[in-house]
């Protein structure tokens, strides 16, 4: 790659993009309560402090339950919609699909408030299940986008060939469709898991007295003394997200390879 102004700009851009995240581990291992330069020395005490915070463990458990349920539900709903959108034409298709994809652009605050108000008006208590419902709503569009990619990469005549050779529609789905979209399904599960794990607004509005990890973190931000611990927790969360993403990307690429296609870009 030649060193043109454009290359320099792009590299600087990438650097700035990552700058805040790079600071996370720096201060998570810094032996000082103030988040400022110069660094004070190496310590793992902030990570150790995470271990003896029971409230944090409960929040982590909540988050995991929510993220796992969300990723499963959103991927199932995404499978239905992505399959319908790629395989069939039906009246008002653009409108129907557009409406389902709406949470992608709608401010999360609007989604959160409208869900909260409905719950309040119905006199229901919000909690883990309502967060799962909200997260499923906002994750489904992502699942659809990923799965639509998998479905449309698949030559439609592959399924016709299987039916032509004597398989029923269901066994065709099992023998041909499912193996070819499995990488997409796994990528969708991982991405939805990541989104749900990191999502704050909906969880914040709907969590009641069962905070998720980000809601717990939000509560800690008020206490300056807790900041290094927050940095440690943030480090773990970011590393977890990156790992999940790399995994998802690996599966996406494997899916492309399996379908015998060339890689043309990333998610979405």
């Amino acid at each position: 790659m030649r060193l043109t102004p454009l290359t320099v700009f792009a590299s600087l851009y990438l650097l700035v993009l990552y700058a805040p995240i790079v600071l996370l581990p720096l201060f998570a291992f810094n032996d000082g309560t103030v988040i400022a330069f110069p660094l004070q020395g190496f310590t793992t005490q902030w990570f150790a402090a995470l271990l003896d915070t029971p409230a944090l463990h409960q929040a982590t458990l909540n988050s995991l339950v929510i993220a796992v349920s969300t990723s499963v539900f959103a991927t199932i709903l995404g499978l239905f919609a992505a399959r319908a959108a790629t395989r069939y034409s039906f009246p008002a298709k653009a409108g129907v699909v557009g409406f389902i994809m709406l949470p992608l652009v709608l401010p999360e605050v609007i989604v959160a408030i409208s869900l909260l108000i409905v719950l309040m008006q119905l006199g229901l208590d919000s909690g883990t299940w309502s967060i799962i419902a909200g997260h499923t709503l906002i994750c489904t569009p992502f699942a659809i986008a990923i799965l639509q990619g998998s479905f449309s990469n698949m030559d439609r005549s592959l399924e016709e060939a299987a039916v032509d050779l004597g398989e029923t529609p269901w066994s065709t789905f099992r023998l041909i469709t499912l193996p070819l979209v499995t990488p997409g399904i796994i990528a969708s599960l991982l991405i939805c898991f990541t989104i749900s794990l990191d999502e704050f607004i909906i969880a914040f509005f709907l969590s009641g007295n069962e905070p998720t990890l980000p809601v717990y973190l939000w509560g800690q931000l008020r206490f300056p003394a807790r900041l290094p611990v927050v940095m440690a927790l943030g480090t773990i969360l970011v590393i977890l997200s990156v790992l999940l993403l790399v995994l998802a990307e690996t599966f996406r690429r494997r899916g492309l390879k399996r379908a015998g296609l060339k890689d043309t870009g990333g998610f979405l």
């Binding site: 239905f80 919609a81 319908a84 959108a85 395989r87 039906f90 409406f99 389902i100 499923t136």
Partner: peptide, 17 residues
């Protein structure tokens, strides 16, 4: 077929959005 297939997702979005 298309509408049947997309209906679970659509109903979900109608109910929750």
């Amino acid at each position: 077929k298309g509408l049947t297939l997309i209906s679970p997702t659509l109903v979900y979005a109608l109910l929750l959005l």
